[in-house]
Simulated assay, not measured.
Amino acid sequence: MRLEAPPASTEAYDGRSPFPHTEQHLGGVPARQAALTAAIVVAPFIALGAGIWLAWGEGITLTDLLLALVFYVVTGLGVTVGFHRLLTHRSFTARPWLRVTLAVAGSMSFQGNLIDWVAVHRRHHAFTDQPGDPHSPHRYGTGPGGQLRGLAHAHLGWLFTSEPTSAARYAPDLLRNDPAMLRVSRAFPALCAISLLLPFAAGWAISGGLYGGLTAFIWAGLVRVALLQHVTWSVNSLCHMIGERPHRTRGHDRSTDLWPLALLSFGESWHNGHHSLPSLARHGRGPRRIDPSAAVIKLFERLNWATDVHWLPPDALQHRRTVAGKRTLRGTT
């Protein structure tokens, strides 16, 4: 894996200006890699159009909807509980079989191999919304034009820039000391294929025909992938642009809590809560902060499949919200 150039110094960054040297990273991605990334992004949208055409006048079958829901939940929780809270932030310790299961489920989401995913996310936390952050929407400054351009970069454009993240630097624990995760990471292409073949096989078996397999492939396969991808990318983009900031974060961090995405993202859109204390198993802190990923981790803990879970003590929640409230009143957030 390539090593990225050291990020520009953040000491002089004022929080408003464009990041230095951003233009030099535009493009420069090897043609084969760019073509593969584009295919992963574009193909699900083509499939959406095909699905609408096939369903025109007939509707979408209950089988397609149920299969799409099942695969969305399984692969989505693989990303949020597995890739993110377990492997990136080590919010809990999982039994070896559960660790592998979550890693496999997350790999079936078409969001990259798990070691690169973890490395990029850890780098994002190290340089949140300042030079060095691989997908900050504030990359091009805080003016209207820069914000629109930055939003597009944070949502999707960063996948096509020549700023590789070093797994050796940001994920050495997985790269060097975790053979099981290394094997799952290397199996990423095969797991993506399985992620599409399973809905096809299930749809064919349930409907008893090729047409049922094809529609399941489209809706529970490609369209499901597209929805989950864009929900995840929206946490990178929208959850650093709009929403509430009830919790204190460091430096130039502009992470927000965005409630409309809470259910679809399995609690990941409580992003300000996450950035305030990244190692916690629960991101949605406080009343009405629905966090399905945390509920799943709680279930794992009760089944004794997960241990050493990092929960926030109740008194700490009240203290941090009080501090954040005072900062808001003083106009310092």
Rank of each mutant, 00 (worst) to 15 (best):
T75V: 08
L62E: 13
F83K: 04
S91I: 00
Y72E: 07
L87S: 11
H89K: 06
P96A: 04
H89C: 07
P96K: 01
G78E: 01
T93K: 14
V79S: 08
V79E: 09
L65T: 12
T88A: 15
A94H: 06
Y72R: 06
T88Q: 02
V79Q: 05
L87D: 08
T75Y: 02
D64R: 04
P96G: 05
L65N: 11
G82D: 09
V81D: 06
L69F: 14
V70M: 14
A68Q: 06
L65C: 15
V81S: 08
V79Y: 07
L62G: 14
V73N: 05
R95S: 12
V73H: 06
G82F: 08
Y72I: 09
T80N: 02
G78P: 05
Y72P: 04
G76H: 04
D64T: 08
D64N: 12
T88G: 02
T63H: 04
T75D: 05
W97N: 09
A68M: 15
L67K: 00
W97C: 09
V73F: 13
L67R: 00
L62R: 14
Y72C: 06
W97E: 13
S91A: 14
R95W: 09
L69G: 08
L69T: 14
G82L: 00
F71L: 14
H84N: 00
T63K: 05
V79R: 10
A94R: 09
W97P: 00
L86R: 11
H89A: 02
L87M: 12
G59W: 05
L86H: 12
H89G: 03
L77K: 08
V74K: 04
T93I: 15
D64K: 05
V74M: 08
V74D: 06
R85A: 05
V81Y: 07
R90L: 10
T93D: 15
H89Y: 00
I60K: 10
L69D: 01
V81Q: 02
Y72T: 12
F71E: 01
T75G: 02
F71W: 14
F92N: 08
V70Y: 12
L77H: 15
V70F: 15
L86A: 13
R95G: 11
F83L: 11
T88E: 03
V73I: 15
G82R: 00
I60C: 10
L67V: 02
G59M: 09
H89L: 01
L62N: 12
G78N: 03
D64H: 07
L66V: 15
V74R: 00
F92P: 03
P96Q: 03
L87Y: 08
T63I: 12
G76T: 07
F83I: 08
L86I: 07
A68V: 00
H84Q: 03
F83D: 10
V74L: 15
T80A: 00
L77R: 05
V74F: 12
W97V: 13
T80P: 01
G78M: 06
I60N: 06
T63S: 11
V70R: 09
V70T: 12
G82V: 02
S91D: 03
L86F: 09
L66D: 07
F83M: 09
G76R: 05
G78L: 04
R90T: 10
A94V: 01
H89W: 02
L69A: 15
R85G: 09
T88H: 02
T80Y: 00
